[in-house]
Amino acid sequence: MSNRTRTLLYLRALIDADRTLDEPRLEPVRLHVRTAGSIPPKAVMAAAGYIVVVWTWRTKPEVTRAEIEQWELGHAAELDVAENAAQPMTEIGGASITDAETGTVPSRPMLAYHGTVLARRSVFAPPGRTVQTLWGAWGEGRQWLEAVLSRAPDTIEPEWLQPVARTIVTLRSELMDGEPEVTVIDPSLPL
């Protein structure tokens, strides 16, 4: 049997076992950090009281990257509503912010999902397993973020946050093995 035939038999068996044909995907082995560029510059973060919450969590053994990405799409869609539209950022005191690098006023949603990445981008780290999920928030978004990450969905106001919170419940119940390790990066605190 040729290598080609053996490989095709293996792939056919793998695809059959998975019962799905994955979307074709190519990834640079040195994975990109999906958050690159989506988190405001540090000076802007500090002025706006922008916090970044990081959940480091272990996936259930059977969970694949594709399933995490599918969850991501749903979660991001729930955040993509008019109530959470990007708006010019303001300092904690309410004054507007000018980004020193660009000279412009940055505009961001108050509650942002920055992505889920492999916790370890080792060259040959196997796919999946331990990942980190990052959110950012400023202004009222800080309270929104705290609510969706910690409270039962139907107890949360405003109402548009409830479907967001439900996706968090899905994350915890269907994808996550155990509890997440929570890290809060608050640039307004002395480091």
């Binding site: 793998l14 076992a17 998975d18 019962r19 053994p61 969970v63 694949t64 399933e67 196997p126 999946g128």
Partner: peptide, 8 residues
């Protein structure tokens, strides 16, 4: 979906 590669 199974991910090959992890044994125990």
């Amino acid at each position: 979906m199974s991910t090959p590669g992890e044994v125990s």
